[in-house]
């Protein structure tokens, strides 16, 4: 009986977890005190737990592999899964504040690892509030790509400080990104799209990618095609607004 219940949360043919068992509220308050564990510093983040094959626990490697891509608010993990095979030698992490959704991504990755031996070893997920704890996970200049895809728009002006892209938070993202690293943002809400573009445009440590660079970047296409939110917008024939910027050295 119990066994039947536990297996039924997975799709029989694909072995993947079924989303209907992981429904969650669409919004989460990023201002509330967190009660989940957070590493005290990046050195205390246990890589062997997240990437057991690529970063074994007892490795005495002086220069171990470090996470390079972070998907902030990864949702159901569509982008991570697509990026995993595109950049098999890069470690990536999804960060999600909603407990059930991060639980889904965890199951999804573990199912993918089981059905595709040797693959999907480079992606993982944590449940965390990235607006508060980014520096607890990554060292200065550690990341080369950061993704903010279809974030919560927080329409009301009084809630603008809850937006994940804001002038002050960009300081922290600039700290975490290596010079040359790229920040990808996309939304289907025009007002938020303008806000995110404005924040990035006015920040002294980011510059926009050229049209040509955007066309040659394989990842840009995934922003709409790989994510669950992006597919939904496409289904409904909606518009999307993206802003892709490069981290540059601060002007002297």
């Amino acid at each position: 009986m119990i066994e039947k219940e536990t297996t039924s949360t997975f799709n029989k043919s694909t072995g993947l977890p079924r989303k209907r068992f992981y429904r969650a509220r669409a919004h989460s308050n990023p201002l509330s005190d967190s009660h989940f564990p957070v590493p005290l510093s990046p050195s205390q983040f246990d890589y062997s737990l997240h990437y057991p094959q690529l970063v074994p626990a007892a490795s005495d490697d002086d220069n171990p592999k470090r996470i390079q891509f972070a998907d902030i608010g990864c949702g159901f993990g569509g982008l991570l899964v697509a990026l995993s095979t595109l950049f098999p030698d890069k470690l990536m992490i999804g960060m999600e504040i909603r407990d059930k959704v991060s639980e889904y991504v965890k199951e999804r990755i573990s199912a993918l690892r089981t059905t595709n031996p040797g693959q999907y070893q480079n992606i993982s997920v944590v449940r965390t509030n990235s607006m508060k704890y980014i520096p607890n996970y990554f060292e200065k200049g550690q990341l080369t790509k950061m993704f903010f895809l279809f974030p919560d728009p927080h329409f009301k002006e009084k809630n603008h400080r809850r937006r994940v892209i804001s002038p002050h938070l960009l300081d922290e993202y600039a700290y975490t990104l290596a010079v040359g690293g790229i920040i990808y943002t996309i939304t289907d809400v025009e007002e938020l799209g303008e806000w995110m573009k404005g924040c990035l445009e006015n920040h002294p440590m980011f510059e926009a990618l050229m049209e040509e660079e955007l066309e040659n970047d394989l990842v840009v296409k995934l922003l709409t095609s790989a994510t669950e939110e992006g597919q939904k917008v496409a289904r409904n024939g909606g518009q999307t607004f993206q802003a892709v910027y490069r981290r540059i050295a601060p002007p002297l």
């Binding site: 005290l40 510093s41 990046p42 520096p135 607890n136 200065k140 002038p167 960009l170 300081d171 922290e172 600039a174 700290y175 920040h203 002294p204 440590m205 601060p250």
Partner: peptide, 21 residues
């Protein structure tokens, strides 16, 4: 945070975080 030439424009460059407490 690095103190910029004109602090009124904002101090955007984070030197480091001291984490451990």
């Amino acid at each position: 945070t690095v103190v910029p030439k004109n602090p009124l424009d904002g101090a955007h460059e984070i030197q480091t975080f001291c984490l451990g407490h």
